[in-house]
Nucleic acid binder design. Structure first.
Lengths: 338, 338
DNA sequence: CTGAAAGCGCTTACAG
DNA sequence: CTGAAAGCGCTTACAG
């Protein structure tokens, strides 16, 4: 019963059953050409010892493991939603999922973590991998699907229609009458950040509103990064009447900064975000934002990876999912302009 | 640059550097006794080929991998919270985390999944594992910490003080004047389910309220399982004036059933849950519940596992974390008794 | 300081 | 129908 002892190996089973490990392997893997009585013996030995084959040894020897990998940096609510989608897509597919997360968030491995983890997993452990928001291009010997890729990445990917979403929400602000609209952009290297910023510029251009470089600030998608930027924007004498932040986390932080500065939202300032995280509905006032179905990002990525691994993927290798404008209380016509 | 080709192995590096794989291994692992010039050659070959050591091969050969495992059945918000705690506890610890989730939720592997996954990982891949809500006892050659163990499990574990929490919330209902309090209990085999039910009984006993077996129904912690049970309870001629459900998911479902039956909450019926999931604050009315810090469950489990693996754990191997009563609008004195 | 060789736990041709 | 042997990519005594 191997309780606290060394793990039971195939040799242990072979010895007890009085056969070779080759035969045990055949029984374990249901290969043809083993006599019924031998199967019986081996089965009983397996039962008796509580044997389970080692994933590591098996994967080292075999080319196919039926395990898919997912590499991530952290576990925010975003990640959790992605995972739900991935798991649902993999349900009953015969593929198990292994997730690799490194713990040295601020340590020596911070740079290029995704490539390192990918290489460690994809040697032989997994048949393919999903990588979430990598900071650069990723390469691997097995199929890879990237969720929210780095800008310019050529890897198969799944992403929301960030450009359309940003255009829509900035268009909404323009429609309310705003003309001075600040933008707190996201992490420079990410495709998503770039598209959202581009959507902002395009919406302004289409409305004939001249672009003011002084109204754009660059954050990192991290909520904390937005505080000083929002403060700087709101301290300007020609303060914007609205701010579009490229993520809800940053938008919520902006809401907080506005409150600290004694500004009323949406009376003195309209604020809009991107993502539609659960906290946005709870904020006071509720945050106007763009919904991207993070669940579907995960679902579609897993579906694509599954197909790629099986060699039966016929669809496009770049999937762009629709976004949806969600209007709540944080945006209104400019009220008390200076 | 191994783009889409076979992964680069240590032999490739050795060949290019003109040394043996033994020497490459020494350089990769920073072992002493390699000449500076050789180190230089090997380093440059590694760089050139983009070599990363295979986690699988390394772990098969070595006893220690500095990777901790986590085995789970699904990815609910509960799991996500646990993961956040685990990751924070592991931050900068030198341990990476690998999570194994099986996709056959309703397939052939459903039974004993935790033991199977544990065995597959703990052969050599991980130095120790956390297992979330296993359905039975788990055993492994490496340290294991269980979050919300099966009833009667002897494994090291971390769990909330479910008994105290249930006693408190049922005490709250009794204090409001309720005497007929229904109970929708959780999955039979789990320690948490048992303790919550036991807390219910104890609170009644202490208040001198006789226990009515007809008022107790057994669900599975799954929200869906609660609907027919709630309906049956509320269809009784001697309907309870309050229902305590052993999880928020089941309590929210009960809220919904009550609404369908035209019952006002809390006017006609008080409802209380357990867990304090985010949705409970958003419900209308807000759900009275017991807060258990799922984040801390994960944090403490990881902390314990880390210590166990390093052989330096001095604390208790069973950690029970405090719970906290959260009163919201779903409970009130019995209003319109029949 | 360096390499040949054994071996971690498996699987898979190859013989018999 | 079954086993001996090679080998997956590494690490580690053991020689030299």
């Amino acid at each position: 019963m191997a309780r606290g002892g060394a793990p039971v190996t195939m040799s242990d089973v072979a010895r007890l059953a009085g056969v070779s490990t080759a035969t045990v392997s055949r029984v374990v893997n249901g290969r043809y050409g083993v006599s019924v009585s031998t199967i019986e013996q081996v089965r009983s030995a397996i039962e008796q010892l509580g044997y389970e084959s080692s994933l590591v040894a098996t994967s080292l020897r075999r080319s196919r493991t039926n395990v898919l990998g997912l590499v991530t940096h952290s576990f925010q609510s975003y990640t959790a939603e992605v995972l739900k989608g991935v798991m649902d897509a993999l349900s009953q597919s015969g593929f198990d999922l292994i997730i690799y997360a490194n713990s040295d968030l601020y340590g020596t491995y911070s740079d290029g973590w995704e490539q390192r983890h990918l290489a460690r997993l994809s040697g032989t452990l997994t048949d393919g991998c999903i990588v979430i928001t990598p900071s650069g291009e990723v390469r691997s010997g097995t199929p890879v699907v990237v969720i929210d890729p780095a800008r310019g990445s050529a890897a198969p990917s799944v992403t929301a229609d960030n450009f359309a979403g940003a255009t829509a929400v900035v268009g909404h602000l323009l429609g309310l009458g705003h003309r001075r609209i600040g933008c707190i952009a996201g992490r420079a290297g990410l495709e998503a950040a770039w598209s959202r910023e581009e959507g902002y510029r395009t919406a302004l251009a289409e409305a004939g509103v001249p672009f003011d470089p002084g109204l754009i600030a660059r954050g990192s998608f991290n909520p904390e990064s937005a505080a000083p930027l929002a403060r700087a924007l709101l301290d300007r004498p020609d303060r914007p009447t609205a701010i579009f932040a490229a993520s809800d986390g940053m938008a919520l932080k902006t809401l907080q900064v506005a409150k600290e500065l004694g500004l009323d939202v949406p009376g003195d300032l309209s604020v809009a975000g991107f993502d539609n995280i659960p906290e946005s509905a709870l904020a006071e006032p509720g945050l106007t934002t763009v919904d991207q179905s993070v669940y579907r990002l995960g679902y579609e990525a897993a579906r694509m990876l599954k197909g790629l691994v099986r060699g039966e993927w016929e669809g496009p290798v770049r999937t762009v999912l629709p976004t949806r404008l969600v209007v709540r209380g944080s945006t209104a016509p400019p009220g008390s302009p200076w």
